[in-house]
Design a protein around this nucleic acid. Sequence first.
DNA 1: ACCTGAACACCGTTCAAGT
DNA 2: ACCTGAACACCGTTCAAGT
Lengths: 180, 180
Amino acid sequence: MVRADARENRARIVETARQALAEDGEVSMNQIAQRAGVGPGTLYRHYPSREALVLAVYQLDIAKLLDSVQELLQRHSPLDALRLWTTALVDAMRRKHGLGDALSPGARQSITESTYDPVIAAITQMLEAGQDDGTIRGDVNPGDFLQLTGALWRAASGPEDRSQSMLGLILDGISRGAPA
Amino acid sequence: MVRADARENRARIVETARQALAEDGEVSMNQIAQRAGVGPGTLYRHYPSREALVLAVYQLDIAKLLDSVQELLQRHSPLDALRLWTTALVDAMRRKHGLGDALSPGARQSITESTYDPVIAAITQMLEAGQDDGTIRGDVNPGDFLQLTGALWRAASGPEDRSQSMLGLILDGISRGAPA
DNA sequence: ACCTGAACACCGTTCAAGT
DNA sequence: ACCTGAACACCGTTCAAGT
């Protein structure tokens, strides 16, 4: 039986860690515990290592990203929604890789696999919105788009971040009116 | 006036750090000091921060790399020498970037600039050796080759390391007999 | 002019004691 | 069933004391 305070602590810890890690990727575990208003022992009870915590944060990031699709499509054009969403996705990928060798290869792979299907679904949804209103070409494959996202991440992690202009090129390419 | 023991300590510290960091990129400063047989204070007298030390190691790496050209050309064919040398260069680039945000952007840029000319000279030397014995095309530009090296580094730092097969493609491309 | 090593504030992590 | 917080071994870094 999981107690209510435990459930609330758990949620507050990830949320706090998400903010703290966004501000400074090197915040200490004790600082996160303090900001979340729990003892260090409680933090470790829920997330037995730094790796486990950052992994949970990444999964929360992805979950929030998936939830954001609806709102983005309501407030922006499909192309702009796709641009904002992809930028956020690349940021999350960078943070995951920021873990460096602290993350076991197996864990990294399994998390990537477990998020593949919902990510494809989100991309599909935005592409279809653009196809419906005629701003995006009908022959764009969601898997291809995700593949290009990998290139964006590599560019963003490179010597100088050229990912925004690259993303601009890609979005031009999938726009209706662009040559096939 | 710089004392003899100071000069020796300095040299032994970088060399020790080079080995220790190669074995484990997260060795502590105190461990390095102990392995080098000096007190932590001495380490910090010569290299006032972790960043300064790793920077010095990187410069030593590059220096050793430049010195190795002669020997590589004696023991291997020009193409093999170029392959081994480029692989080592990409490794050094990866280690430099492994510093992450711990390295100030200015320091990273200035070190890259200061090593540019000698690196070009080394590449030129190996290309010319291959042109002399007829195994490398005569129209290969050293700057172009170095540019491609950047792509290799990005590939090596990516999700799966494809840099060796990419390097193979590049070397095939500059071989005599390959179409222009 | 340089080296030594004890010391400082802090790190990630653990665990006995509580409720 | 869970939380607290003192404690452990260690971290990067400093600095008074020595030679």
